[in-house]
Structure formats: structure tokens, C-alpha cells
């Protein structure tokens, strides 16, 4: 099955494309918004700063189609900065509005001694999760969500404080960790997402 991967220009795109291929999907990197609404599956990866990420999405004309897709409940996977871009704003880039599909804000880790959180940490999925399971995930982030948006099921992790590891609603999955770098556990999650409808 074909998966469109939004090329945000700064992400570890090669890792994402390789992982999607390994779980039997057919990824294609895109830089134009035309097929985002009609595609069977879309991935919004992303690393780097919130402001730069939003600027790129807006310049490429992708903000509206991505928002529309999520609101319509069409299959989408957002990873790391991809998850944060779905929120209303981030203290990383004050004054820059996010996509606002998740009505929560993003802020820097405050308690943890070591930032960025770089490495493997334990994920605990809540009972309502269909895709997310317990396990160890690979993280590379300095900012996080602390609140779960209403209507979404969530998994949590501790890094000095409890934060949102991932949220899911139907076939829309948004993870703070990198499933594409999270070994067998991460690939099983991507496989479940690849089959979710």
C-alpha cells in the first residue's frame, strides 16, 4: 500500500522511508500538497524546531490538507515534531500558531536533569489504546505535550515528569517517540498503523 511521506526538508527522511518499506508499505516522499487529502495513508515526520517546521508546512501549502485529513479521521502518522505541529503552539517558537488539531500546547522539559531526552524510555499505553502498546521507544526531544486532548487515547512516559508519549484516534496516530527507530516494538506499531482503518 502506498504511503505519502511529507518531506519537511529537515527530518531523518531516509530512516522513515526505510522503516515503512520494512513493514511492507510503499513510501513516496512528497513536497506538493495535491495528493494529501486523497492518499490512502500519509506520514508527517519531522525533526528540528517548531517554527521552522510550521513555516515549511505553510510554504508548501500543506497545513490545510493535513488538518482536513485528521479532522476527517483519515489514516495519518505524525512523528516527533510532527506530533507537536498538530498542537496549538509551542514555547519553542512563541507566537507561531500550530495546526491546532490537538487543542493542547507544547513546552520544554522542566524537571529532567538531561535535555534533550535522547535514548530509550518506557511507554505505558492506557486502556483505550488500539494501536499503542507498552514497551521501550526511542526518543530525541526537548519539548513535549503534558495534556491529552479530549477524544484521544494516549500513552505516557516519564522523563523527570510525566508527558504524552503518543495519542491515537482511529487510524490517526501521533507519536513523540520515533517508531521508525524503535526496533521491533516500533516496527510492530507501524505495522498495526499500516493496517488500521
Amino acid at each position: 500500500m502506498k504511503v505519502l511521506v511529507i518531506d519537511t526538508g529537515t527530518s531523518n527522511l531516509a530512516s522513515m522511508l526505510a522503516a515503512l518499506t520494512r513493514v511492507g508499505l510503499t513510501p513516496e516522499a512528497i513536497t506538493t500538497p495535491d495528493d494529501i487529502e486523497s492518499a490512502e495513508r500519509v506520514v508527517l515526520p519531522g525533526v528540528g524546531a517548531f517554527g521552522a517546521g510550521m513555516k515549511r508546512l505553510n510554504e508548501l501549502g500543506m497545513s490545510e490538507p493535513v488538518r482536513a485529513r485528521i479532522e476527517a479521521g483519515r489514516p495519518l502518522l505524525a512523528v516527533c515534531l510532527g506530533l507537536q505541529l498538530l498542537c496549538t503552539s509551542s514555547t519553542e517558537s512563541p507566537g507561531v500558531p500550530g495546526l491546532g488539531v490537538l487543542p493542547v500546547t507544547v513546552a520544554r522539559f522542566e524537571v529532567a536533569e538531561i535535555v534533550p531526552q535522547l535514548g530509550w524510555n518506557k511507554v505505558t499505553a492506557s486502556e483505550g489504546c488500539a494501536l499503542l502498546r507498552d514497551g521501550y521507544a526511542y526518543y530525541a526531544n526537548s519539548y513535549c505535550l503534558r495534556e491529552v486532548p479530549e477524544g484521544w487515547s494516549a500513552a505516557h512516559t516519564h522523563h523527570g515528569e510525566r508527558f504524552v508519549a503518543a495519542v491515537e484516534r482511529g487510524p490517526v496516530l501521533a507519536t513523540q517517540f520515533h517508531p521508525e527507530l524503535s526496533g521491533a516494538w516500533g516496527h510492530e506499531l507501524m505495522d498495526r498503523w499500516g493496517k488500521a482503518c
Binding site: S15, A19, L181, A184, G186
Partner: peptide
């Protein structure tokens, strides 16, 4: 790097 990436499921 490309050959390792195709197979490796952890960070490089």
C-alpha cells in the same frame, strides 16, 4: 550508510 540504514531498525 545507505546499506546499513535499509536493514537497521535502531538509530545510526
Amino acid at each position: 550508510v545507505a546499506r546499513v540504514r535499509a536493514e537497521l531498525r535502531i538509530p545510526l
